[in-house]
Amino acid sequence: MPEVAAIAKDLLERGVVKAVIGYAAAGPNRTRPFIARTAEQANALVFNRHALNNLAVFLTRRRKPVAGPVAVVAKGCDVRALIMLMQEQQVRREDVHIIGVTCGGVASSMGTPWSVETAAPKCAHCRFHTPHLYDSLAEGTEEVGPLPDRSGERIKELEALPPDERFAFWAEQFSRCIRCYACREVCPICSCEQCVADKNQPQWIDRSPTSRGNFAWNLVRAFHLAGRCIGCNECERACPADIPLSLLNRKLAMTALEEFHYIAGTDPAAPTLVGTYDKTDRQDYIA
């Protein structure tokens, strides 16, 4: 399989795309998003176990760096985000050239050396080590044996607590939120031109970082991504207050799977989970 840089160079030389959005090295165990506009710049593109960013975020209308067709380097989870954007008509399939990379897992944060113990929790339950949709496939990293499923265990632990203790746990977590909205800005799926948290007529969510407003904001953010979040965990990585947002996201993804047999971001032609319904949906809890 060719390297990312070789594919990018070829695409830019032939003029198939205006830019390639990928990763460049940025110090020990670090990468940063990098937009290559010329074949020469494409030499800087790399892919390794520290390519953490979900670059699909650069393809939404309000964040796209250049007009016209672009190529994007995407791991399996990033491809799911691209598919989700296609399902929601935010990105057109023909406007993006997907350079898929095989990925056997990434480190949990920038600067952390890679090992099975320091692997990002999302990689433990990844089903898409080889992307399921791409235009070219590039050499990436190898799969390793089973990784510890830390977030799955944490969810089980929390579910075993009595409701009041769970409430206290989340109230404490959310109370640290500073309402920077980094979780929203980094999320490829939070593509609303105006977020409900920014609306003030009517004002649904307190603007100030009070306990009450934080609770509402975090519930709304998680709920708006129900059936849409593809589990890249970029929100949690971006959160300066270390709130375990991925647990909320994953819990909802698990519910979507159990109740509706739905996995977000697998089929570009499929309707979205809450954009449709089934007449036989579960209703045993409705009196």
């Binding site: 969810i155 929390l158 579910e159 607590l161 409701p163 009041d164 203790e165 769970r166 409430f167 206290a168 746990f169 989340w170 519930l219 998680a222 709920f223 129900a226 059936g227 909320l248 819990k251 909802l252 519910t255 979507a256 109740e259 509706f260 989970l273 809450v274 319904y277 089934d278 007449k279 949906d281 579960r282 209703q283 809890y285 409705i286």
Partner: peptide, 18 residues
């Protein structure tokens, strides 16, 4: 029908936050 789907998800979320 649309509401029912949302409720199923929202209930699960509220239950998870206690």
């Amino acid at each position: 029908f649309h509401a029912r789907r949302r409720w199923t998800l929202f209930r699960a979320l509220l239950d998870f936050v206690g």
